[in-house]
Amino acid sequence: MQIQNKVLFIGPMGAGKTTAIQTLSDDVAASTEVQNSNKEMFNKETTTVAMDYGAIQLDDNQRIHLYGIPGQKHFEPVWPVVAKGAIGAILLVNASQPNWQQDTLYFIKAFDMLAKSNSILVAANRITDEQHDELAELLDQQGYCLPLLTTDPRFHDELVLALNILIANLEIEISIDD
């Protein structure tokens, strides 16, 4: 039997959500990119306004639908719409961005239901060893027991590993609950 699940990609603008979904998806991913009018926030040409979508056949029995949220905070009303039915989320953190620590906590709190059930994996990119330790400590201080990986959103294998770890973690959580 084919199992179908939905996984979210969350994180601020410029964290790599669109790139990750494009990298992971078996087919060409769908996106809702428009001209970025706020280059002070993040200096890139386009930004996601509704969602990204892709899908990957993780193994013979499991197809994962990948949904990316629009990362800018004024799109927060859209997040629950995109998140509906997701079993877990990969939180992308770009540690070269200013305020990456606050942003990380902001997104964890915005998706509190997933965080509380340990259904979020934190995938950091452009991160130094010191920042990695800082992030691990930050999560620990806030009482979150979430898997933390260094993952480049351009590398398929790293993302597949992240996805597999997230799903394995979810299965462990379900078996503990049972």
């Binding site: 428009v34 996601t48 629009p70």
Partner: peptide, 11 residues
């Protein structure tokens, strides 16, 4: 409303 309108246009 502005954010939702832009999202709706994007979708």
């Amino acid at each position: 409303l502005a954010a939702m309108a832009a999202s709706f246009a994007g979708i």
